[in-house]
Amino acid sequence: MINVIKRETMGRSERGWLHSQFHFSFAEYYNPDNIRFGALRVVNDDTFDPHGGFDTHPHEDMEIVSYVVDGRLTHRDSMGNGSTLGRGDAQYMSAGTGVRHSEFNNTDEPLRFLQIWILPDAKGYEPNYGDHRFAWEDRVGQWLAIASGRQGAAPIAIHQDMDVSVAMLDAGETLSYDLKPGRQAYLIQIEGEGEVNGTKLAERDAAEITDEAEATVRAKTPSHYILFDMAAE
């Protein structure tokens, strides 16, 4: 089954320099019927104006992945880590017993990134940070695994049975993703227009994919996708 979530129905927030679209309940947006999808708790499509950002703030017991869509994201944390990532790069922070960090756009151009929170498989992990700069061409015409559970092959390891993959397709191209029995997926049309299993997706729409053997995306225009493969509930 394909359940499309249109961007117009998602939560929204405008806070000066910060422009957000919430896939699930977050901050001032609360919908008791839309708290999470499986272990996927938060997906915020955030845009920072030039020189905007989050000052140092705490997190705990959450797996946090940030995927840069466009612009430059600068991270600093209480573990002594600091980095600046660009389009198509990803960072990971296992908040565990507690960590403090900041995120900023220190440039004169807008920054767009997906802020992703994944429920961990247990509480109390030692905090950890990592990032990876992926070659853009590695996702062109194919799925590129960017994060996965500890048994997965992705360069970013997370404390949860979930695989996170991205792909970029030219107009008219198709790409399939096999879903094993007992699995479900959450797909986001990050950029462009396309469809999944014949169901239309506009830019920034999402689709809950359940009871399907595979997810086949087709790009109507050049399209950028992210897919979360997880255990069904």
Rank of each mutant, 00 (worst) to 15 (best):
A147E: 04
A154R: 03
S148M: 05
I146A: 01
E137G: 05
H132A: 02
N128G: 06
D138E: 15
M168A: 15
L169Y: 04
A157Y: 01
H159W: 03
N128K: 14
G141K: 08
M168I: 11
H159N: 10
W143S: 05
D161P: 01
H132N: 05
D163H: 09
Y129I: 08
G152M: 12
V164H: 02
E137P: 00
S165I: 07
G130W: 04
H159M: 05
G130S: 13
H159P: 01
W136F: 11
A135Q: 09
A167Y: 08
S148C: 03
D131F: 10
Q160R: 11
R133E: 11
V164R: 03
I156E: 00
Q151W: 02
I146E: 00
Q151M: 09
E137Y: 04
A147D: 05
S165H: 09
R150A: 04
A147W: 04
L144C: 09
A154L: 06
W136M: 10
D131G: 00
E137C: 03
L144R: 12
D163Q: 14
E137H: 10
P127E: 11
F134R: 01
E126H: 07
S148E: 04
Q151A: 15
I156P: 00
R139S: 06
R150E: 12
F134I: 09
W143Q: 07
I158M: 02
W143Y: 11
N128W: 06
A145Y: 03
S165W: 04
A153E: 15
Q151I: 11
H132F: 12
S148Q: 04
V166M: 03
P155M: 05
I146F: 01
R133G: 02
Y129G: 01
F134N: 00
D131C: 09
D131Y: 09
Q142D: 08
E126V: 15
R133Q: 13
A153N: 14
M168K: 13
V166E: 02
A167S: 13
M162V: 15
W143L: 10
F134V: 06
D131V: 09
S148P: 00
P155A: 08
H132V: 10
G152S: 13
P155E: 07
G141Y: 07
Q142F: 02
R133D: 02
